[in-house]
Simulated assay, not measured.
Amino acid sequence: MNIMKRLTPLLALVCIASTGFGSSVLAQGEFGYDVELDVVYGKGIVGSDGVLVERDLLLDVYTPSANNADYTKSDAVADTPRPAVILVYGGGFQRGGRRHAPYSEFDAIHSRMEDYAQLLAPLGYTVFVIEYRLAPELPEPHMALDADWVVTIEEDLTDAGMRRVNFARDSLGLGPLEGEDGKVVVWKTILSAAEDLEKAVEFVRSSSFRFGVDPDRIALGGHSAGAATVINAAHGLDVPVTAIFPLSPPLSAIDLSKTVTTSDETPTLHVISQYDEPAVLEKAPGFTAAMRNAGADYELVWVPGFPHFYPHNTPSLGDDGTRKALSVRLTDFLDKHLKQ
């Protein structure tokens, strides 16, 4: 047998080449997508040895490929410019990454943002998985801590929310954040994360030709802290996106009375699980009521039987009585808002 014929599929999976943009390309076309790693999308200020410094903010890009017809819809790569999805990982604003081992809790393992990217890219979406500044870096936001779209620190950072923050810190071997000073660190991180996501949206829109995406068809999604960041960016900072899907969002900083007021709010697929974190469950009713009272395009989805972590192929129950795999419900939602 020709040895090159045997190696070609493997080479397609592991070949890494320079792109000329300070990043690298990991060719995985046999799975219906290619990956470009470590693309700089902006800069953010963090604390280092008592001094404020600026660091690069990075993302990974998952681009649809037609190389595997079994995993790619026939029209997935023909539609250019393509719709885009920007994904934000969770971790209590303390931990996480773009290529990170999955978290588990009560024997439940969640799907990472890269898992969602690998689901969506073969279906014709160009997907960007971003990093953002985390609390151990001591980020400094540009906006004021009492910006006009946010609630007060005391109102947002509840006891349940701070317990989840410190749960994440404990997993890193870090001490708890306590008192007013600890809350200020978390608050700065929440606002910095929203700013970083806003920068990512600006980058994708300004680089639409490079990535072959439509700047007017962008969705945001994230889990946990990433989901809160998605809500803060879309409904607080009013970033120009078409739809969002926050998965189990806690600690949302937005003042609902000021930010969710009209039927023109960004269409939202809001997911929570049956045994979700108290920090999630205590926030969900207020957001749901605000979106429905405003007459916005809003779906509430419940994942039965799972805690805060759950896989994207788990069954989900819609507020319209439907039962679907979460992955199917998500792709239906994105197809409706980004492909029609």
Rank of each mutant, 00 (worst) to 15 (best):
H110P: 00
V230K: 03
A279M: 03
H110L: 14
F287T: 09
Y71E: 04
R217E: 08
D320F: 07
V150I: 10
D264Q: 11
L269F: 15
H235C: 00
Y125W: 04
E36F: 05
A108C: 11
V61K: 12
A144V: 03
S24G: 11
Q118S: 12
G29L: 02
M162A: 05
E178C: 06
M291Q: 12
L58W: 06
V88H: 01
L237C: 02
A234K: 13
R323M: 14
I231L: 15
L57E: 05
E180D: 15
S74Q: 12
V230L: 06
D170S: 15
L197R: 07
D107Q: 12
A69G: 06
Q340R: 11
M1E: 05
F209V: 13
G221Y: 03
L300D: 02
E299G: 00
V201P: 07
D255S: 13
P102I: 09
S327W: 12
A168G: 03
P81S: 11
V184A: 06
L174W: 07
L120V: 03
S65C: 10
T266D: 08
Y132E: 10
L57H: 07
V328M: 04
D196K: 10
T63K: 14
A325S: 12
R6G: 04
D332E: 15
Y132N: 11
W187R: 02
G32I: 05
P285M: 02
K258N: 00
D49G: 05
R205A: 14
Y89T: 08
I218C: 06
S327F: 08
V151K: 11
